[in-house]
Design a protein around this nucleic acid. Structure first.
Lengths: 353, 353
DNA sequence: GCACCTCATGTTAACGTTAACGAAGGGGTG
DNA sequence: CACCCCTTCGTTAACGTTAACATGAGGTGC
């Protein structure tokens, strides 16, 4: 009790006010500047009419006291907190993380803060809890990066309580969704391999329950079907390099497999290792295409041909959309689709013969 | 103006209150339960003496109205927000990101929310801005993951305004620091190589201006000095795989280089590629040790021997320390050091001789 | 010169919660 | 039976800000 958390030392080298214990408020600034607290408020919010002279006085007083506005009070009276929530999956996956920074950067430029809440793998209860916490905390809106199908369903029920948009999720839900065209990406990858002259293309998938997994599978399968080519069985992965390695061990024993599309770059890394250990050279014996284009992918052995997802754009665009939603108040269920891009490097080539 | 951001639809399938426009407050709950708002407050905070009967009434009313406490109001009156700030570097580096999730998870368990603010590479002004924003927002404390020396200096001046702890930084500052023993990690790596029988060990560093860079260099150099062995010139990197690749190209042309300690795993990846392209096999021709132990490192070609940093522990521990600091109020400048661990895989072996 | 408008400022009342205190009732102890 | 204490509740006053309205000084048009 004795020590308050906001107790403030007299500040560097400046002030009198010996026994001051709480940090200064508008009244203190107002008194020092010889104006009313309302005038201080006006100066702070820039908006209203304040004479240059008075403004200067107030600014000086603010400076001298080291005054910082208390946004809890502001939030209380205005009903908006200039804080946005971000719900994301709690794992070190490259995609969600880059998206987070994209969102944060855009938010900062727009004058918003971001508070994060992460949900463990697929726990639907955790989503509810995160949503509740964020709501209690008074966020003005929420970006949900929850690419799991199970989470998508839980979202719709909350969407009407708060402005909210989803990244990579729930096409059926009644909330706006922003996503990279996964299916197109998969078609790009598969077509590239087919055009190189490969008979067919194998596929290492992501884990079940992810939208990305689904859409990449369907883009791949559609391309193969359209080309009237055999569809080999899928190899299931879980995004980790280790699962890619295991898929690679299987693939190494298939002499007729000359091309494989792997659902992300981390799995491609493991797959590359398995191939290498089994003496199958990439791309001479077998061509590999990944997905994501992580910064490391250009330095795989060999440098990986992959599909680039512009994650930080996704972050920025989704924040813009959320802000627009907050401003308009209308619950549009727009869909924003971002186009991925094939990056050809050295893990793909024409088949040997 | 017409649509308030907090306007709330009548809730799923329940309530009367036709024209209700604002979301319910304690008074509404109190009226419905037939008690005073203070009693509602007591129920919410669990603390005081409330008869089981009354408690049940209140809980039912809360449920029925879908009441959610307004934390802005609570923050205003209590002076604490149950929100913590996290300042981190805005880049997709594995370490800071994992730390973030460690912090977030620990915070969630302790009932705190995390709001993040990122600072671009080394802009000291950005740190001030981030600190200011967080302070305005009313956070109860701040974790700064700012491993740049330039940032560390800027910190000290703010430390006394707010409970604050640093991760990997500013040994001189007057705030508690939690860090992995970088120097020990470097000694572990270097010693491992020396014990394998290598004459000396080369080093690819991180970028100048980072604490980690410095300490890994000194750990490496000390070990070499203690072993009375030649200290080869350092190769400067910048944490990226690309810079590791460039270092690897140089190293490939040094026939007498048989062992190298690379300051992080991403650079090691690039280095491995360069070595491979120049026909130098790892570990037969040259041994490589990395730093970090990213999840991918076990799937490099070959699997990388590296020094594991337990990032999510770092996150958890730093949060615990911050919470303790907040509770005690005293400005201890404790140092918590976490021990890294050498993970031996297949990128190191005895020299060919 | 009177009414009227505009600009610059001040005054008062919220916002939704917790803290501090006070009051009523029940039970034990002397 | 009086006294006191403890439990359970209610009442009142903050917290620091913005919104809404009020005030007064000066200028403009007729």
């Amino acid at each position: 009790m004795a020590n308050m958390p906001f107790a403030v030392e007299p500040h560097e080298g400046d002030l009198p006010r010996a026994g001051s214990k709480r940090r200064p408020g508008m009244h203190d600034v107002a008194r020092l500047a010889g104006v009313s607290h309302q005038t201080v408020s006006r100066v702070l919010n820039g908006n209203a009419n304040v004479s240059p002279r008075t403004r200067a006085l107030v600014v000086a007083a603010i400076e001298e006291l080291g005054y910082r506005p208390n946004s809890a009070a502001r939030t209380l009276v205005t009903g908006r907190s200039r804080t946005l929530g971000l719900i994301t999956i709690a794992s070190a996956l490259y995609g969600p993380m880059s998206t987070l920074y994209g969102v944060e950067a855009a938010a900062r430029e727009a004058g918003y803060m971001i508070t994060v809440a992460s949900v463990g793998d697929g726990e639907a209860g955790a989503l509810d809890e995160a949503l509740m916490n964020l709501q209690k905390q008074g966020v003005d809106g929420i970006v949900v990066v929850a690419p799991l199908i199970s989470l998508g369903d839980a979202l719709s029920s909350h969407a009407r309580h708060l402005p909210m948009i989803a990244v990579e999720g729930s096409p059926g839900a009644s909330l706006p969704v922003i996503s990279v065209d996964q299916s197109l990406g998969a078609r790009l990858a598969t077509t590239h391999l087919l055009e190189l002259g490969h008979r067919t293309v194998w596929h290492v998938t992501g884990p079940a329950g992810w939208y990305e997994t689904q859409h990449r599978i369907s883009g791949w399968a559609e391309t193969l079907t359209a080309a009237q080519v055999d569809i080999p069985p899928m190899l299931r992965g879980d995004w980790t390099a280790q699962s890619g390695y295991e898929a690679g061990q299987i693939l190494s024993r298939m002499p007729d497999a000359t091309a494989v599309f792997v659902a992300n770059d981390q799995m491609a890394l493991g797959l590359l290792r398995a191939l290498h250990e089994h003496g199958r050279t990439v791309p001479d014996d077998i061509s590999v295409v990944g997905f994501d284009d992580m910064p490391e992918s250009a330095n795989f052995i060999p440098p990986l041909t992959t599909v680039r997802q512009p994650f930080s754009d996704v972050g920025r665009r989704s924040l813009e959309a959320l802000l627009a939603l907050i401003k308009s108040g209308t619950g549009s269920d727009e869909r924003i689709v971002i186009t991925p891009e094939l990056v050809v490097r050295r893990s793909t080539s024409r088949p040997a013969s």
